[in-house]
Amino acid sequence: MVDFDVVDLPEADHVAEGDEAPDFTRPLVTDEYWEDVALSDLLADDPVLLVFTPMDGAFPATYLWNELRDRGVHDHRVQVAGVSISTPYEHKTTIAERGIEAFAGLFSDPQNGVADAYGVSHDLDGMAGVSEPRPAVFLVDEDGTVAYAWVADEWPAFPDYDDVEDAVASI
């Protein structure tokens, strides 16, 4: 039996396939350090699988990172980068605990501005001024175009991982 409520999320006016991905600069946390990095800087090397999750430690984030790691999505010509409201310190712990050192890193976005720009910000019920990203996945080509987009319409929800793998493999 499920011990949590499934919640329908309001419709999101999010970035879609074929749209230009909004560029941003935030601290990108790796297993060794963090520094301010722009999405466009990452795109100069390879496409980016941009993964929005709720705060680190929430079971949807944990499950999503485990699944992407176990499927070896990062073994393709793509950089996997997360975005959440968690701090760099929390991200360092998540990277170590989830064994995702091979990913490009996790962007720290405590004010949730990147999620706002992508149209995936979700206001938390009963908490004035508190929001987090709804789960979402965007595959961004090196030219900055969104090649694949999935955004949760309920909580919790997870992408079709086979679709994510297919999108990554086709780039």
Rank of each mutant, 00 (worst) to 15 (best):
V140C: 00
D166S: 14
P110C: 09
D163P: 02
D8A: 14
D109N: 13
E67M: 11
A169W: 02
E101D: 15
L139G: 01
P10L: 04
T53S: 12
E90R: 10
T145N: 05
D13C: 10
V151Q: 10
V137M: 03
P47I: 10
P27F: 07
D109S: 04
P22W: 05
L139T: 05
A147W: 01
F103H: 07
V164W: 01
Q111F: 10
I95H: 01
A149I: 03
A104P: 03
S131T: 09
V7R: 13
V146G: 01
P156F: 09
V73Y: 00
E20H: 12
V2M: 13
T93V: 14
L39W: 00
H122F: 14
V6R: 13
E101G: 11
P47L: 08
A149E: 07
A128N: 14
E101T: 13
S84L: 04
E90I: 04
P159E: 06
H74G: 12
G57Q: 03
E154P: 05
E17S: 11
A12H: 11
V80M: 04
A96I: 06
F138P: 01
A152H: 02
D75A: 13
Q79Y: 12
V168P: 01
F24R: 04
V120I: 05
A136V: 01
E90Q: 15
A61N: 12
L49D: 08
H122A: 14
P135S: 15
A104I: 07
V48L: 01
S170L: 10
D36I: 05
L42I: 09
T87F: 07
G129I: 06
T93C: 08
Q79V: 07
M127S: 11
E17V: 13
D123Y: 11
V48D: 02
E165A: 11
A167Q: 02
L42R: 07
D56S: 09
M55A: 15
A149M: 03
E20W: 11
A117P: 00
T145K: 13
D109M: 06
G144R: 04
P135C: 14
F52H: 02
P110Y: 08
V80T: 03
R134M: 11
E154S: 14
V6N: 09
S86M: 03
K92G: 12
V151L: 07
H91G: 01
Y148P: 03
L28C: 07
G82E: 00
L64N: 09
V137H: 00
Q111E: 15
D125Y: 10
P133W: 03
A16D: 13
Q79D: 15
